[in-house]
Nucleic acid binder design. Structure first.
Length: 408
RNA sequence: GCGUCGGUGGUAGAGUGGUCAAUUACACUUGGCUGUAAACCAAGCGGCUUCGGCCUUCGGGGGUUCGAAUCCCUCCCGGCGCACCA
């Protein structure tokens, strides 16, 4: 079964166009290889730091899963050894060596997020997980020098990131040159045919192409995928450093709400890069009212990572809370003792500073949801936080935060 | 090693003895308008406060001064140039 590879040309054509920035050396050659019926080994690398994955990461896995379904071999490489050296752009954060147990845990965490997209349990053709410490830790200095002799300093300096840093007078550390070497050697060690990664990984992936040629006299293909970006601003969507990402393990409610908060202009891009909805169907969906189209996207996503049932509930909850001004089903609760002020209760429950809470109250951002429906808008706002809470309350703080306060 | 320039709040980047909790932009938060969208308008954006103030911040430490992000010393970190090495 696993030996049978689909050569459905239509499917291959869509696969090679959707979310794909470039194929090296050429798309044509890869297509020919795919049509030849030869079973190929695909791989994607991931950092072993146990991160929370978000939708921006999902694109590559979606693509990989498509190739798996065609019958190709899929390897997901955990960069547990490369992670030891650390992210070159973030030299403040000196990496601590991870124990095998920690790495194992990270793999489990990671897998629990990705298994919604990639099938690891298919008996005929499951995706495999490898760790690069297996071979990188065994490399001798001598072998490293041999690897390094395939590259020139000029070549390394071509890398955009380095070029920019040098221009800006910022440091470029020597060990950063080892990154592409190590990642490149992964391709050799696993003897892969194709590597999939974001456009930001192109340089590293090409290093693997060079080494594969030297070591195995083999053409390794590189598929670089588009980074999830806002088409109108060109800015990255889902940036962890900016905190505006939709995590794969977000609750249905969060996932739905965050999707609805996305700008309209990115909905098409989101459909293309983060769902499996066929391209023709996407056009139809986008013909509807922008809000409807976005809700469709939100449903689609929650269904992928949770279930259709959860998506329906999340939608109903969102409607009730935001369109109809109601209270969401599940909100955090705090229990306070009898003589507690709003200020103390909120500071404790939200982890905000008291100064910040005063500002919020002044901006009339705190609403009392236990006031009778007939009350005027103004009456529902809590302006004086020094009051003692006398009866249980449901409060809304800002747009999305809700809190139920119970009295002990 | 020598010389030189630099290290400021989430980011970029002003400020070069008091008017600096620190210009400005972006980001962010909140209010308004809405479709919890975008755009736009407005406010906020270190902490504590009995709202009088108080405390902690401009790489670390020490010093000068009534007073320092600003001057001096020293240490750490980085850029560039030179030297060394090759």
């Amino acid at each position: 079964m696993a030996d049978v590879v689909s050569i459905d040309e239509k499917k291959i054509d869509e696969l090679l166009s959707r979310s794909i920035a470039d194929v090296l050396p050429t798309k044509k050659e890869l297509k020919e290889l795919l049509l030849s019926g030869k079973r190929l080994r695909f791989y994607i690398g991931t950092d072993a730091t146990g991160p929370q994955l978000h939708l921006g990461h999902s694109t590559n896995y979606l693509i990989l899963e498509q190739f798996r379904q065609l019958g190709h071999e899929i390897v997901i490489l955990f960069g547990d050894y490369t992670a030891l050296i650390g992210d070159p752009t973030d030299k403040e954060a000196a990496r601590v060596q991870q124990t095998p147990a920690q790495v194992a845990k990270h793999i489990l965490d990671w897998k629990s997020q990705v298994e919604k997209i990639v099938n690891f349990t298919d008996s005929a053709n499951p995706a495999k997980i490898l760790q690069n410490s297996e071979w990188l830790s065994k490399l001798s200095f001598e072998e490293l020098i041999t690897i390094a002799s395939n590259f020139t300093v000029q070549h390394m300096l071509e890398r955009d990131m380095f070029e920019k840093r040098i221009e800006a007078g910022k440091p470029v550390y020597l060990h950063e040159f080892f990154y592409p070497l190590m990642q490149g050697y992964d391709s050799v060690a696993m003897n892969v045919d194709v590597e999939v990664g974001g456009t930001d990984q192109t340089f590293n992936m090409l290093a693997g192409r060079i080494l594969q040629k030297r070591y195995h006299n083999k053409e390794k293909f590189v598929i670089s995928t588009t980074l999830l970006a806002n088409p109108s601003t060109g800015k990255k969507l889902m940036s962890k450093s900016e905190g505006n990402y939709i995590a794969l393990n977000d609750t249905p409610q969060d996932m739905f709400g965050k999707t609805m908060a996305l700008p309209d202009g990115v909905v098409r891009q989101m459909f293309i890069d983060t769902t499996n909805v066929p391209l023709v169907a996407i056009d139809e969906i986008l013909d509807a009212h922008p809000k409807e189209a976005k809700m469709r996207l939100a449903r689609e996503l929650v269904t992928m990572y949770h279930s259709a049932d959860a998506a329906g509930k999340a939608e109903a909850d969102w409607q009730n809370t935001f369109s109809d001004g109601g209270v969401p089903e599940q909100i955090p609760e705090v229990v306070v003792s009898v003589v507690t002020t709003y200020l103390d209760a909120l500071a404790e429950a939200l982890g905000e500073s008291k100064a910040e809470l005063r500002r919020l109250a002044n901006a009339r951002a705190i609403t009392d949801f236990t006031m009778p429906a007939a009350a005027q808008q103004e009456e529902k706002k809590i302006l004086d936080l020094s009051e003692i809470i006398s009866v249980p309350k449901i409060l809304r703080i800002g747009k999305h935060r809700f809190l139920k306060i119970l009295i002990k």
